[in-house]
Nucleic acid binder design. Structure first.
Length: 260
DNA sequence: AAAACTAGCAACCGCACACGA
DNA sequence: GTCGTGTGCGGTTGCTAGTTT
């Protein structure tokens, strides 16, 4: 039967976005909100695939995005979440305000992975590497990476992986060994909370701005990181309604971007 | 100074899922 | 239940900037 391509391959532009394209996309979304992505390029006057528009918006243009490298606390949280969720980057990103799945995935592949390997930890299984070379040797239950890490309030607290009992042999073929563990079934109250839907739905940290909560996480405030916030400190609390964006000055997009 | 190499990141691709008809 | 469509997700690619030789 064949699936219809997400976009007409002919006449669709690819590659890096220009400031002009960014402006058109932002202008459209601010005016109309996020609707049918397939229709967006046409309505916005862009020669782009709808998916490309969504990606650009999600990963770069969204005003609530933080920029820059992940800090220590975020990195630690990513590792902890990856140990439990596997490569489910969107789930991980959902726990990190202002970060995108793509960003976290990239950071994982370029930084964290190497760091873990250097520390003798398998970035896939989160088990010590020597255990795999020497399967008979019993590995310590606690993942050494996760002990003695600062918690999000700054003091030290063990955020150990309590679910590190040997993976069920029946699921050994699973490439994400930690998927079997129930993230909600966790003794650690902090991690329980982070993994809970309650956390996700907690509007006190959910976007657009939850300043104190950012700080508690050891993160900088979103303002000053996003090019949007740099230019529009008055962006409203009802961002997701998008109603207040109609008057936003888009000139920021004219600024010679670092890359785009 | 120039070429080769490496790292980091933005963007693309294809599959899977959700949902409505 | 099935089919078609839209969207989201994860893996991968390719470009660019920085570093090394």
């Amino acid at each position: 039967m064949g699936r219809q391509p997400c976009c007409d391959k002919f006449g669709v532009k690819k590659g890096p976005w220009t400031a002009e394209e960014d402006r058109k996309l932002v202008n459209f979304i601010l005016t109309h909100g996020q609707c049918c992505w397939r229709a967006v390029p046409k309505l916005a006057g862009l020669r782009r695939c709808g998916k490309s528009c969504r990606l650009r918006w999600t990963n770069y243009l969204r005003p609530d995005l933080k920029r820059g490298l992940l800090n220590e606390a975020e990195e630690q949280l990513v590792i902890e979440l990856h140990a439990r969720l596997g490569n489910r980057w969107s789930k991980i990103a959902a726990r990190l305000p202002g970060r995108t799945d793509n960003e976290i995935k990239n950071h994982w592949n370029t930084h964290i992975k190497k760091k873990l390997i250097k520390m003798g930890i398998d970035p896939v299984t989160h088990e010590p590497l020597h255990k795999q070379e020497n399967p008979g040797a019993a590995a310590p239950c606690h993942n050494i990476m996760y002990d003695h890490q600062p918690n999000f309030n700054g003091d030290h607290q063990q955020i150990s992986n309590n679910n590190c009992e040997p993976q069920a042999s029946s699921s050994s073929s699973n490439t994400t060994p930690t998927e079997s563990s129930d993230p909600n079934n966790d003794d650690d109250p902090l991690m329980s909370y982070i993994f809970s839907d309650t956390y996700l739905e907690d509007s006190t940290w959910n976007f657009p701005i939850a300043r104190e909560e950012y700080c508690e996480f050891g993160m900088s405030s979103p303002e000053g990181n996003s090019p949007w916030f740099l230019a529009h400190n008055d962006i409203g609390d009802d961002y997701f309604g998008l109603g207040r964006f109609n008057d936003v000055d888009l000139s920021v997009l004219d600024q010679p971007d670092d890359k785009h």
